[in-house]
């Protein structure tokens, strides 16, 4: 099991650089490129959600990201101390393509994460919010 920890300020400008670092870490650990790409997308969405919903755009807070990779799984834990999210249920994205007045402009991030990850889980305890994402990854057999 390889583990790496990252910490960023809750600023949108810090999201892309850290997702690139984590993608590099996944590639170094021989995770398949397509899995690395999908993980990068989910990380971006999850971190943006923390800044927007938990910290309400306050860029002075911090977000911790723990990444664990073994032969079968990639596990990411994102921790913040902002407002806990409510109604964190199974995300749905339903819209009528003929009704463009009512297209969703938000709520797509969690839906993307749910589609690309194999398991997601959110909890909030004692002022600490944690979002877990797990992806079954394909790695070449060790020689």
């Amino acid at each position: 099991m390889k583990t790496k920890e990252f910490k960023i300020r809750s600023d949108y400008s810090e999201v892309t650089p850290v997702t690139k670092l984590i993608r590099s870490f996944c590639l170094e650990e021989n995770v398949k490129v397509s899995d690395c790409n999908e993980t990068e997308i989910c990380l971006m969405e999850a971190l943006n959600n923390v800044i927007k919903h938990a910290y309400k755009g306050d860029s002075s807070k911090s977000i911790s990201i723990d990444v664990k990779i073994n032969d079968k799984e990639l596990i990411i834990r994102i921790t913040d101390t902002g407002y806990p999210r409510k109604n964190f249920g199974k995300p749905k994205l339903e819209y009528d393509p003929n009704d463009i007045e009512n297209l969703p402009e938000g709520g797509m991030g969690l839906y993307i994460i749910d589609q690309l990850m194999d398991e997601i889980f959110y909890e909030s305890q004692n002022g600490i919010n944690t979002f877990h994402m797990k992806k079954i990854v394909a790695k070449p057999a060790s020689v």
């Binding site: 997308i41 943006n48 938000g106 797509m108």
Partner: peptide, 9 residues
Amino acid sequence: SYISSAGLG
């Protein structure tokens, strides 16, 4: 190279 849901929005 990349688009997130905020861009799609």
